[in-house]
């Protein structure tokens, strides 16, 4: 049995990861620690595990690995502490809001000899895996251009507090697609231009709520990416991850979470999309549990997290300077 602990439930993805751990036969959610003790206790109860109030005691317990799902700016301190305690780490995305922090996390894990993974579950989404397989088959030839979106609803809370998140929608919703394209195409990003907007939630958010990015990858592949918190409260789901891939031999379109039922609910007076596809989080957590058990690196590494953070921070630098910048 692999014992995994969760550090902080500040990020809502922690709930899904906890549920995945409780589903897997060879792993368990062994303990919860949270710098918000009230939240941590409630979550520990909900997921039928123990809450450990002191970080030292949590890291000294019989955990084999930890999942860090805190606010973005706290990733570094938590990862450094967990690495020093010899725990394998899966860190929520973005690995960190700054390149400096991301590098420090990677270095701390290298030094301690522990595995580090970044939580990019889209790599385990079957529609995206099939799209990659089509590209890898060679049937579609060279990739020329990609148009991507990662839209969401405004999450509010600490996400909108730059002191805790490091940025807005562009910080939140660039790294998934940046990682996907690095993985699918096997190429690095080289250049970015970005326009940021904050006009959709001006009254409630101080951060950007949309980023319209134009990027280049090695080999001159042109990429447009839209990172946003633009889906209205009345939208039938949380958002999307979509790709339109323009290739020599055709076009591939992916709408990764479009396996859904449309539910018309009179009681709630709303329309919802109920997902029925496989849960990509389960693939992510399974891989991490295996990595911990086999003492190997998780498949999606800390370096992958660092590279994605480099894209995001370059996008913000582009907007600040009003120019396209090198990555």
């Amino acid at each position: 049995m692999v014992n995994i602990g969760i550090m902080s439930f500040a990020h809502m993805h922690a709930d899904s990861y906890a549920a995945c751990l409780n589903t897997l036969p060879d792993a368990c959610l062994a303990a919860v620690w949270d710098d918000n003790a009230r939240r941590g206790r409630a979550k520990a109860r909900a997921f039928k595990t123990r809450f450990i109030n002191k970080l030292d005691a949590f890291l000294a317990s019989d955990l084999d690995g930890v999942i860090i799902t805190s606010e973005n700016v706290k990733h570094r301190a938590m990862a450094e502490a967990a690495a020093a305690a010899g725990k394998w780490i899966l860190c929520e995305k973005p690995l960190a809001p700054t390149v400096e922090d991301a590098r420090a996390i990677v270095a701390a894990c290298n030094k301690a000899g522990v595995g580090l993974g970044t939580a990019f579950p889209c790599r385990y989404a079957l529609p995206l895996m099939e799209a990659k397989a089509k590209l890898d088959s060679g049937e579609f030839g060279a990739v020329y251009a990609v148009a991507c979106t990662n839209h969401g609803q405004a999450p509010g809370g600490w996400f909108a507090d730059e002191e805790l998140s490091g940025g807005g929608a562009t910080m939140d919703h660039t790294v998934h697609v940046a990682d996907l394209l690095r993985w699918m195409l096997g190429k690095e990003f080289t250049r970015v231009h970005c326009e940021l907007g904050n006009q959709l939630h001006k009254k409630t958010l101080k951060t950007d709520d949309l980023g319209s990015l134009n990027l280049e990858m090695e080999g001159g592949i042109q990429v447009g990416h839209l990172a946003s918190w633009s889906r209205p409260v009345s939208y039938p789901t949380w958002g999307d991850v979509t790709l339109e891939i323009i290739c020599e031999g055709g076009v591939i379109n992916v709408d990764a979470f479009n396996q859904k039922l449309t539910v018309y609910d009179d009681k709630a007076k709303r329309v919802n999309w109920a997902p029925w596809g496989d849960n990509p989080d389960l693939g992510l957590i399974s891989d991490f549990v295996e990595a911990v058990r086999d003492k190997r690196e998780p498949s999606v590494t800390g370096i992958d997290g660092l590279r994605a953070t480099e894209v995001t921070t370059a996008a913000y630098a582009s907007f600040r300077t009003g120019t396209a910048v090198k990555i």
Binding site: Y144, A145, A147, H193, E195, S212, L213, N214, Q222, G224, I246, E248, G249
Partner: peptide, 9 residues
Amino acid sequence: VQVDYSQVT
């Protein structure tokens, strides 16, 4: 192949 794809911000 002759293709054009234009992405404007």
